[in-house]
Amino acid sequence: MIDNSPEFRVKRGIGLTLMLVLLAFAAVPTLWVLILSFRAPMAIFQPIWESPLALTLDNFFKITRSNFPSALMNSFITAGLSTAFAMIVGVPAGFALAKARLSGKFVASWVLLLLRMAPPVGFVIPLFLLYVNAGLIDTYMGLVFAYMTLTLPLVTWSMWNSFAQVPDELIEAAIMDDANLMQAFLLIALPAARPGAVAAAILAFLVAWNDFFYALIITRSGTATAPVAVMNFISYDSVDWASIAVASIALTLPILPLMAIANRYIVQSLSGAVKG
């Protein structure tokens, strides 16, 4: 049915305007950063229409000579490893929580929720003190472990939900077919919960990738991640806006494909892709 009443058109107009405003809020800063990254250093503070042609690729070359690329690598390594470890432990844990007849699941759910909700400050101080004593400051291991306090509860929690959507009968059918528990898990339950697992891995990676606080406290120059390295572009006497702009693009680009995949799988896992 097509509603053409004036009343509906006004409502639709208001709706569209609101959407455009929201879109602008999200898009304008991104566009601005994009433009900034191509601006010559002296033109940065000039309005674009005054010197529209003051464009350069220097900013990109300049940043490759800084320590930012190695910081980006650190981000990849720590986010990747903390996601991988969280998946290795959290996926089977989620399976057990969803399917085993356990007492105390209620407690487990509260603990997991608490871990997910608790602010990082709550963890970072004890971790810092521990790390100073254990010599884990500015090490990959230290940072990966710290990130796992974020990624592991996230993965466990969301895989618990994903596996809960896999019908018990599917696993029982596998058991009847003489699969052992490991085979039932790896060959049947996990593929059935695949959308959820992909979504969990991506979300975990993003949590670690986007972290600033942990890395700021726990790393020094050796393992600083990209968000921390951005701080180096701010010195006492000046702020290197162009480099910051390039860095933000470098930080955003890798997650775009992840977002695209995650979007698809999150929708799938929400709509319950698992049906016999």
Partner: peptide, 13 residues
């Protein structure tokens, strides 16, 4: 023994 379930329990993938 082989079992046939009410929901069929076919492996979806």
């Amino acid at each position: 023994l082989a079992m046939v379930f009410q929901s069929y329990a076919l492996y979806p993938h």
